[in-house]
């Protein structure tokens, strides 16, 4: 085929029906809805939710998980665009673990060292490790599907960022069900659970985001 003939062919397919930005917006909305539906159908808020809202530790769990969701989503909407500047979104994302480290330091100062172990192990480690990945299946699928419209330079990394966004979203929902509020618990188990989702996102990216 001559290149001119190929150009004839391509130009007849000029219109774009579904732009990448729209695909991502739909995926973010779908992700929140999917995780939300699953959460309220299978778990729901913890019984003492109103009392918990007065606890700084509980509020922090919501803040740090939502911050992860927002920062990772912000990077995700850029990572599939060739030539987009990723520095600032990436820096914002790195601030999230720093937030967690700060809370851990504050907790270590506030709680006697004899109770550190018990606070960290908590009572809901199994639920945390299984429910966060389960809650993130819907959002992660939606994000990967949307990113397939994109053109990420590093497919694995793009998938991992989608995993962080999905994991952050799932963790935010789960946090309002979980009764372990210590930052020590969050730093260990939430990080592990979100790490699992991020790893799954990385593999999904390698598999489905090459273009």
């Amino acid at each position: 085929m001559k290149t001119d003939e190929l150009i004839n062919l391509l130009s007849q397919d000029s219109a774009v029906r579904f732009r990448f930005g729209q695909a991502l917006a739909v995926a973010l909305l779908a992700g929140v809805l999917l995780a939300g539906l699953f959460f309220f159908a299978a778990m729901g808020f913890r019984p003492d939710i109103y009392a918990a809202l007065e606890s700084l530790r509980f509020i922090f769990k919501l803040v740090v998980t939502l911050a992860l969701f927002l920062a990772a989503s912000n990077l995700m909407v850029q990572i599939g665009r060739p030539g987009a500047r990723l520095q600032w979104p990436a820096v914002t994302l790195v601030l999230v673990p720093l937030l967690l480290v700060g809370a851990v330091v504050a907790e270590l100062a506030a709680v006697p060292s004899a109770r550190w172990g018990a606070q960290m192990i908590g009572r809901n480690a199994h639920e945390c490790l299984s429910l966060i990945p389960l809650l993130s299946i819907g959002p992660l699928s939606a994000f990967i599907l949307a990113l397939r419209q994109g053109a990420p330079q590093h497919p694995g990394r793009a998938g991992a960022v989608a995993g962080l966004a999905a994991g952050g979203l799932a963790a935010a929902f789960y946090a309002s069900n979980c009764t372990d509020d210590s930052p020590l618990f969050v730093a260990l188990w939430y990080t592990l659970a979100i790490g699992i989702v991020t790893g799954a996102g990385y593999l999904a990216g390698k598999r489905w985001l090459t273009w």
Binding site: V16, R19, G21, R81, A84, A151
Partner: peptide
């Protein structure tokens, strides 16, 4: 062509 939707 196939990725033109990613141009902002």
């Amino acid at each position: 062509h196939l990725k033109r939707g990613t141009w902002d």
